[in-house]
Design a protein around this nucleic acid. Structure first.
Lengths: 212, 212
DNA sequence: TAGATTGTTAATCGATTAACAATC
DNA sequence: TAGATTGTTAATCGATTAACAATC
């Protein structure tokens, strides 16, 4: 079984559709249209149609798309209907925030354990998770067949921890550190890119203030 | 004075260059080349050259670019050499993480106050900030001439809080909620898009697992 | 039916990559 | 000098937008 390959830009739009559709569903709206989604999210209506078509849903001319169907189709497309166990490495500010974040229950990510190297935090409870010694991580990745790691360590140890994770058999890393990780080419790394939107914001604000 | 307009994709690459260059500087390397940056970050060398050219730096043929100059030029380009006061709204998990995040001292963002609507957290100290009542926010935005707001509220109140901020004169919002905010067209909104990279990761991992 | 909406194919636009001249 | 690197202009590629036929 082989899925069609979809561009990153398309994939990045998918969660936006979900975040627009879920409140609609809650309000009891049965149908919506590509044009309505287009207007609400500022995405061209043709683009919306193409994106939705990739998920396999079909709309009804003059009526639109069934909201329930769209949500289900997008969730299946992203595999957010099945939960996938993940380890979180590094229980600093960002790590702790993600451990406590309840938005993940709408995705496939389920954090099942949290690790840290600092003896002072090992054994402590952080947002409901007992922090484990990072020395036990590699062993547990193999034994529990965990595929995803969320990397929220300090930047300086990020590559070293990555090497350990890859060696243990991790297939995908959600990278919250700002550096480019070096991994074998069959390992997936997705950068959260926290600084990217700040860079865009900073520059645009500078433009606005300069033009005054 | 008017800055040249630069595409978002280019702006998003700028912090990556910085994160590669700063450790080089620390190691005492005086020069680097576009090809070295290209290899390290997986960005085409022509792309790197064009991006760097936008910041105004000139390299020396056969030698490369002075690391110090590059860092300085990119920081100036993003206005990260001047600090800009920002308010943070919503001291939940993500808000608290950002308040404690020390990575911001390398950017222009300086959080000067944190607000929340929950009486239980107002007055409490979170990562060094005394949480203020959100009722006082609009007034303080005007009095302190704050331009940037970091939005880390629950999703349901995000639009309402945005309206308040815009009414008070905020010019730019760094949006950590997943919804599309409605603002007048001269107000800048940059979405942190936390779910986007997760969507890419989820789909790619599904592809890999499906092909096994 | 007429009109609104879907969904596809063609055209455009912009970003990336290739080619190459300039230079220390 | 020869070679490595810069920086620019041209070609390619892919994403977005426009046009339009199909349909309930």
């Amino acid at each position: 079984m082989k899925n069609i390959v979809v561009s990153d830009l398309t994939l990045r739009r998918m969660p936006k559709y979900l975040h627009f559709l879920r409140p609609l569903q809650k309000l009891g709206h049965e149908f919506t249209s590509a044009s309505e989604i287009s207007r609400a999210l500022g995405i061209h209506h043709t683009q919306v149609r193409k994106d939705l078509a990739l998920t396999g849903v079909r709309g009804i001319p003059k009526v639109g798309h069934r909201v329930d169907d769209l949500i289900k189709a997008i969730e299946e497309f992203l595999n957010w209907n099945n939960s996938t166990d993940a380890f979180l490495i590094g229980t600093g500010n960002m790590g702790a925030a993600l451990l406590g974040y309840d938005g993940f229950n709408k995705t496939n990510i389920k954090i099942v354990a949290a690790f840290d190297a600092d003896p002072k935090t090992i054994g402590r409870e952080v947002n409901g998770y007992r922090v484990m010694n990072i020395d036990k991580c590699a062993n547990l990745v193999e034994r529990m067949h965990v595929h995803i790691a969320i990397l929220t360590t300090p930047t300086v140890v990020a590559q070293e921890v990555t090497d350990m994770l890859v060696g243990a058999g991790i297939l995908a890393i959600w990278n919250f550190t700002p550096i480019k990780l070096v991994v074998p080419k069959d390992v997936i790394v997705e950068d959260a890119e926290l600084y990217s939107s700040l860079a865009v914001l900073s520059r645009k604000l500078t433009d606005v203030l300069a033009s005054v």
